[in-house]
């Protein structure tokens, strides 16, 4: 848990082990919660599903390397300034987000992790903490 995060800010939290079934469950549980609370993000459903998938897949594939004993944590924070924050954390060794690409590069050298992160950054404000093990995705809500 990020020590900067106040416990009361978290309105949804779920922890799963690293499996493909749990990847999909975590995406669907988060979307169901957000829809149930009637938070309307500005991006469409496909884009929202995709960025959750990219972040969770990154955590499971590149963070936890599909180690079944490692966990992925997802937290949704209470909206502030009409933005919703979703944090996803893995139990890997982290990475340096400063080396992430700003641009795709066709068939060439873009890393597998880089392509997913590029998609995430197109649809929301993304930042990293905890040595790259936690991604924070901030999404604008509809007025």
């Amino acid at each position: 848990m990020n020590i900067a995060m106040e416990k009361n800010d978290v309105i949804f939290g779920e922890t799963v082990k690293t499996t493909n079934d749990n990847r999909i469950k975590l995406i669907e549980d988060a979307i169901a919660f957000i829809e149930n609370r009637k938070f309307l993000v500005k991006i469409d459903h496909y884009e929202f599903y995709l960025i959750l998938d990219e972040a969770i897949s990154n955590a499971m594939e590149h963070g936890n390397h599909w180690n079944l004993e490692k966990h992925v944590y997802l937290r949704i924070l209470h909206p502030e300034n009409n933005r919703l924050e979703i944090d996803i954390e893995d139990e890997g060794s982290g990475f340096d987000p400063d080396v992430l690409p700003e641009k795709a590069n066709g068939m060439q050298t873009l890393s597998p992790r880089g392509r997913g992160i590029l998609i995430i950054k197109k649809f929301c404000n993304a930042s990293w903490s905890n040595n790259g093990k936690t991604i924070k995705m901030s999404l604008a809500l509809q007025d």
Binding site: Y49, D53, E54, M107, P112, G116
Partner: peptide, 19 residues
């Protein structure tokens, strides 16, 4: 109906290999 970066990576790997 759906593809993510892992699916896209499959195509990139395949096209890179074939090319």
């Amino acid at each position: 109906t759906y593809i993510n970066s892992l699916g896209i990576a499959e195509f990139i790997s395949l096209m890179r290999y074939l090319s």
